[in-house]
Amino acid sequence: MDRTYTHIAFLVVPNATLLDITGPYEAFSLAAQCLQSHTGKPNTTYVLHTLSIDKNRIVRTSSGLCLQCESSIKSLDYQIDTLFIPGIPENLEDMVSPKILSWIKQQAVKVRRICSICTGAFILAEASILNNRRVATHWKLCDKLAKDYPSLDVDRESIFVKDGHVYTSAGVSSGIDLALALIEEDYGRTLALEVARELVVYLKRPGNQAQFSVTLKHQDSDYKPIQDIKDWLPEHLKERITVEQLAEQALMSPRNFARVFAKETGITPAKYIEKLRLETACRFLTETQLTLETIADECGLITINNMRRLFLKYLKITPSDYRKCFRAQI
């Protein structure tokens, strides 16, 4: 029986972030191994390739570890199905040469999927592949990406984003999330789950899950009254919380409290509490056996319908589906 090969290629640029390459590479490698044991799909598999940008196939990554690539972009003898572009941690203005950008642009119209990890989005943007698309990158560089490439719709929250055949992802570990999502696209949930088990990770974090928690995003305030309120909130989410109540605790007027809180955290008190309740509900859904009714009550959302609306607003997924996704864990 003829075997069908799906060629997954990783462009290894000098100073690339190592995990941008090895994370998704390992996921696809395990998928190829798992496919060998799936009697229903004995004639199809992934084949992985690492490509250097010139004939020197040994490439130094940002961590100092060198990778020996299989070949260079000048010696391709197969059709790339999925092309991965890793990020580099520094010197974004001096990313890759115009010739390499031209090669990437040529490949973008040939491949079935083209993907970037972390700051690899800047390389795709420079190659004009992301024009007028919704994209993701590392949270620290979202503003820079949006400023440098105004035609892009930069999603500052998502772990990864699919826009047509172009996939962009956030920080380095999100490359594994993206790879698992692509494996699921190709072969279904069963294989993706098997790979996740081997990697000892969640089956998938939805692409639109926030890159990091609300407490990390809205960092600790140096102003003690506000920090005290932030420390108090997680233990009292079940209660009815008002700005007036918080202002009284902080010994401020409601108007002044709201102004100071927004200045210190970058978010209004109401929005902060809303996101904190959402984050807490996510944790209950994945770490406990509590019913949806109980979780809604414990988080101060009162009803399942309120919780459902909150999940759809921020995560574009229902609480039940979120629980199903995240319970596929080891």
Rank of each mutant, 00 (worst) to 15 (best):
L11V: 04
D94Q: 11
A296E: 02
D163S: 09
T61Q: 04
P234I: 08
S213R: 00
E235H: 15
I330A: 15
N43T: 10
A262Y: 02
I8K: 03
V154Y: 00
L315Q: 03
P98M: 09
E70K: 12
H49I: 08
R57L: 15
T291V: 03
F257C: 05
Q79H: 08
Y5W: 02
V109M: 08
E293P: 14
R156A: 09
K271V: 05
D297P: 00
F10C: 08
T215E: 12
M307T: 02
V135N: 03
E287G: 12
H138E: 06
L92I: 02
G64S: 04
R277P: 10
V154A: 02
N256L: 10
S29R: 10
M1Y: 12
N132K: 06
Q106V: 02
E248M: 13
T288D: 07
F311P: 03
S37L: 15
L92D: 01
V195M: 05
Q219K: 08
Y322K: 07
N305W: 06
T119R: 02
S213G: 05
T215P: 08
F160D: 00
G120M: 08
P98L: 09
V260K: 13
K105Y: 12
Q219Y: 04
L285P: 02
D54L: 10
S128E: 04
N15Y: 11
F257D: 04
V59E: 10
E90F: 06
Q209P: 03
C299S: 00
K275M: 14
T6C: 11
D143R: 05
G188N: 09
G207H: 01
E93K: 04
F84R: 03
L35H: 14
Q36D: 15
L237V: 05
A258H: 05
Y223N: 05
L67I: 07
Q79R: 13
K162N: 02
Y5L: 06
C34R: 10
K316T: 04
T268H: 00
T45H: 15
K275D: 07
E279P: 01
D228W: 09
T119I: 02
E184C: 12
R113C: 05
I302A: 12
R240I: 15
I73Y: 06
A258E: 12
K162Y: 03
D186E: 12
I241C: 10
K275W: 11
S320T: 10
N15C: 12
L301E: 00
K238M: 11
E184P: 01
F212H: 07
